[in-house]
């Protein structure tokens, strides 16, 4: 059989993309369109299922099968599809409100069931489509239209939540880092089972600059910890070491010995180490 080489163009639908100028969703879309040809799966075997929210328009822009469903329910619909059609490659496109508020129950159960779904959670830490209310990942004290004196709720940490829900694959990446996002997509699609990909995504209208610390050229390399299997976990200024009580902490490089830096183990079955990593930024 002749090899058919597909390109980014083959995965781009004829629909006009309608996100706000500067939205982080554009770069995620471009990365996905560029990644799909290398996935090696024919277009007709790929399905994107989304819920409701800005990110959930994603399927319209891809020349694959797609369903823009209802708020929070994409993991449930995708589970039914994947269970009955294991030959398909199924992505769930969701946001912090869609996955963690209205769809929280489906989100955790999809992860624990470990059905072969790739859940891409676009986390902009705000409600965009309803024009700017706080979300379950907004920081406590967030002042928004619905919280004029600041929100009271403690936010979810999606990675911690996913680990608690028995997820077998979790990664966190960011809209602007095309290379890293592509790497994460490669690993997630190779994983047999549910995969949670949290993508920090900037909303330029209602929560602009939420992730500037890890985007800004000056602060980025100090603030970013790259997790690479078998490599010490460190930024240009800090590293992760184990405390006496077994917990993990970030310490300035100047205060520690190189040999004490924790070496990343991406395959550890016991989730306590991953959970400790997920709490580091707090």
């Amino acid at each position: 059989m002749a090899e058919i080489t597909l390109t980014k163009k083959d995965f781009t639908s004829d629909q006009e993309v309608r996100w706000c100028p500067g939205c982080g969703d554009y770069s995620i879309l471009a990365t996905m369109q560029a990644f799909l040809p290398e996935l090696g799966v024919p277009r007709e075997k790929i399905v994107f299922i989304s819920g409701i929210g800005c990110s959930s328009r994603f399927p319209y822009y891809l020349e694959t099968f797609g369903m823009h469903s209802i708020h929070g329910r994409a993991p449930a619909i995708a589970s039914g599809l994947t269970i009955s059609r294991p030959d398909l490659t199924v992505f769930v496109i969701t946001g912090d409100g869609d996955a963690l508020s209205i769809g929280g129950n489906h989100f955790i159960h999809a992860l624990r069931r470990n059905v072969d779904l790739k859940i891409m959670l676009f986390n902009n830490r705000i409600y965009g489509l309803t024009k700017g209310q706080y979300s379950p990942t907004s920081e406590a004290g967030k002042i928004t239209k619905s919280t004029p004196v600041g929100s009271l709720d403690t936010p979810f940490n999606p990675v911690s939540l996913g680990l608690g829900a028995e997820a077998t694959f979790i990664a966190r990446t960011i809209d602007s880092d095309r290379k890293h996002l592509t790497g994460v997509l490669q690993a997630a699609t190779k994983h047999k089972g549910s995969a949670l990909i949290e993508i920090y995504q900037n909303c330029p209208i209602f929560n602009d600059g939420a992730f500037d610390t890890i985007k800004d050229g000056n602060s980025r390399e100090g603030a970013l910890l790259h997790l690479i299997h078998g490599e010490p976990i460190k930024s240009t200024t800090h590293a992760v070491v184990r405390k006496d009580d077994g917990d993990l902490e970030m310490r300035p490089l100047s205060e520690i010995n190189e040999v004490d830096i924790v070496v990343h183990d991406a395959h550890r079955v016991d989730p306590t180490y991953a959970f400790a990593l997920s709490r580091l930024h707090q």
Binding site: I49, R73, A76, L81, I83, R85, N105, H106
Partner: peptide, 25 residues
Amino acid sequence: ITFQAEDEIAAVGAAIGASYGGAMG
């Protein structure tokens, strides 16, 4: 195929997903 879902909503959602894929959901 039977799927005991986490709630009533997921139960019908999964059935819709299965029908979309060509099963009698």
